[in-house]
């Protein structure tokens, strides 16, 4: 199912991290138009303040890893980078942090677009990460699939029929093949344990 990008940010809180109070206030005025509550922060971001945020808007000219209370690229909320000087080093930092969207300081009027893009990129990134984690978890179960096929072959099936049986079990339970294998092996161990 395709998901429409989020475009209503009303009631959400944005932390605006910028050394300049004036620019912070300009961004706050823009946030007001979108129903977003902006908290302007001119110093480092504390972990407790970060927890209240639904998104972060920061100045990539002055930001550094130490300002953010999470490891590189692991922000728990969408992060929008304000582009000022365009120096390659600062852009490289922003890319290392895997910022979700960029907004030139000269184009603050386009904050809405940056929020839509940022939230969508963040959502896709989260989905990709979840998928990668699931694939890693499943590939770690390959040995169990082989063990389960061998166990089913002990009942007189060939390997193709054994795999088919395992697939059918996965389908009925609506779980992955690897999880079905783990479940089958656990059940057999339990039976064997109970019998001894």
């Amino acid at each position: 199912m395709t998901r429409a990008p989020l475009h209503n940010f009303s009631g959400r809180t944005a932390i605006v991290l910028h050394r300049s109070e004036e620019i912070g206030q300009r961004i706050k005025a823009r946030c007001d138009r979108l129903g977003v509550r902006a908290l302007v922060c001119t110093g480092d971001l504390s972990a407790s303040l970060a927890e209240t945020a639904d998104m972060l808007i920061l100045d990539i000219d002055t930001a550094d890893d130490g300002m953010l209370p999470w490891p590189n690229g692991a922000a728990p909320v969408p992060v929008i980078g304000l582009v000022g000087s365009e120096s390659p080093g600062r852009l490289a930092w922003a890319l290392r942090q895997e910022l979700d969207a960029f907004l030139p300081l000269s184009a603050l009027g386009n904050l809405f677009s940056a929020l839509v893009v940022g939230h969508e990129v963040f959502a896709r990134k989260s989905e990709t990460r979840a998928r990668a984690a699931e694939l890693a978890r499943r590939s770690s179960g390959r040995l169990d699939v082989i063990r389960a096929v061998l166990a089913l072959m002990e009942e007189g099936r060939d390997e193709a029929l054994a795999l088919k049986k395992l697939r059918a079990m996965a389908m009925v339970e609506q779980i992955s093949l690897e999880d079905a294998a783990r479940r089958l092996l656990a059940k057999r161990r339990a039976i064997r344990g109970g019998a001894s």
Partner: peptide
């Protein structure tokens, strides 16, 4: 104009 008063999401 941004329909912020409509129930979000």
């Amino acid at each position: 104009p941004y329909l912020t008063s409509r129930v979000a999401n």
